[in-house]
Write a protein that binds this DNA or RNA. Structure first.
Lengths: 161, 161
DNA sequence: AAAGAGTTTAGAATTATTCTAAATCCTTGT
DNA sequence: ACAAGGATTTAGAATAATTCTAAACTCTTT
C-alpha cells in the first residue's frame, strides 16, 4: 500500500469494517499525515489540512485523529507532557527523542528484540503493546533509518524562572 | 539507604550538592512519596502531604516534585495523556500499565537487556535514558516483583460519547 | 421525501500545569 | 545580633491542549 489511491482504499475499508463512514474530512486528515514522514501535532495537522479544506474545524481534526488511531492507521506518540503527536509509521519501531534539536527519529526494532522484551514480563502479564522511547543526543552526521522533524520543543533546563 | 533518616540525609546531600536548600516542604514531599510504593499524581501527593503540613500549597508540591526529579531522587512517569505520576523506584525498570484495572506495575529490567536496547540505535545516537512501557492485562493471580496501585483512570473505549 | 444514524462544527468547558508577584525564610557578612 | 540578599513558598491568575455540547448537516435507507 503506497500510492494515494491505495491509501485511500485502505482507509475506506478500515472505516467501513468498523461501521464508520469514509468522509472527506477523514480522507484529507489521513492524506496529510501520510504526505510527510514526521510526527505532527493536532495543531500542525489542522494547519496543513486547512489549506486543502479551509472550512474544517479543529474539533473535527481531533475527531478524525481519534478515529484513525482507533482504526490503527496511524499511531499516537506522547513524549513528556508535550502535545500529542501522530505517526504514519506503522512498523514496529521505537522513538529517539533528540533533546538538543527536539527532533524525533524512528528506530526500527528487530523482531527478536520484541520477543525478548515480552520475556522480561513475569508470568501472568500479557502485553498487547510496547512503547519504547530513547532520549539523548544524535550526532549531526548520522543517517538514521528514518528521520522525522518535530517542532522544536526544547524544554528549558531546571531553575530558569 | 532505607530508614527515614537515611533518606532524609540523602535528600539533604543531593539538594546541597545542587546548590538548593533542604526545606521542610521538600522533606515532607519526599517522605510521603517513599512511604508507599505506588505512582501517585501531584494531586494525590498534595492530599497526603496536607495531613502532615496543612499549610502547604499545590504550587509548592509541584515545585518540590520538579526539584526531586531534577536531583534524581524520584522518577516522573507519563502514561498517555493522564496526569504525571511520580515513582520512588530508582532501579532501572519498565512500567506495565494494566488497562483493565488502571494499575501500574514496576518491571525489573536485566542489565543485558538494557545493553541490547542501546545496541538497536544506529551509529551516532547516544541515549541518556530509555523509557519502556508495556500496556495490557495482568492475570489476577500473578505476583509481580513490585505491584503498585494507581488511581483507576480507565479510559473509556472508542465511541462512548 | 422522511426518518434516523453518523458526522461536523463553533464555541464553551475542563483541567493539569505553569506563571506571577508578594510574603517569608535562610544564610552570610559585618 | 542585624541587615542585606537570594532562595523559597504561597495564593491565585493564566495557559493551553483537549474534550464536551448542542445544533446543523449529510448520508443512507425506507
Amino acid at each position: 500500500m503506497n500510492t494515494p489511491s491505495e491509501n485511500s482504499a485502505t482507509l475506506t475499508k478500515r472505516l467501513i469494517d468498523s461501521g464508520l463512514r469514509p468522509t472527506a474530512q477523514r480522507e484529507v486528515v489521513f492524506k496529510v499525515i501520510l504526505e510527510k514522514r514526521d510526527h505532527p501535532t493536532a495543531d500542525e495537522i489542522f494547519a496543513r489540512v486547512k489549506s486543502q479544506m479551509p472550512t474544517i474545524s479543529l474539533a473535527t481534526v481531533y475527531n478524525c485523529l481519534e478515529t484513525l488511531v482507533h482504526c490503527q492507521l496511524i499511531r499516537q506518540v506522547n513524549l513528556e507532557r508535550a502535545p500529542t503527536r501522530y505517526c504514519p509509521n506503522l512498523h514496529q519501531h521505537a522513538h529517539f527523542h533528540d533533546e538538543t534539536t527536539g527532533q524525533i527519529h524512528d528506530i526500527d526494532l528487530p523482531i527478536e528484540l520484541m520477543a525478548q522484551l515480552h520475556d522480561v514480563l513475569p508470568a501472568g502479564f500479557i502485553a498487547s503493546s510496547i512503547e519504547l522511547t530513547f532520549r539523548g543526543a544524535a550526532a549531526g552526521t548520522a543517517q538514521p533509518t528514518v528521520t522525522a522533524d518535530c517542532a522544536p520543543t526544547l524544554n528549558n533546563p531546571h531553575g530558569t524562572n
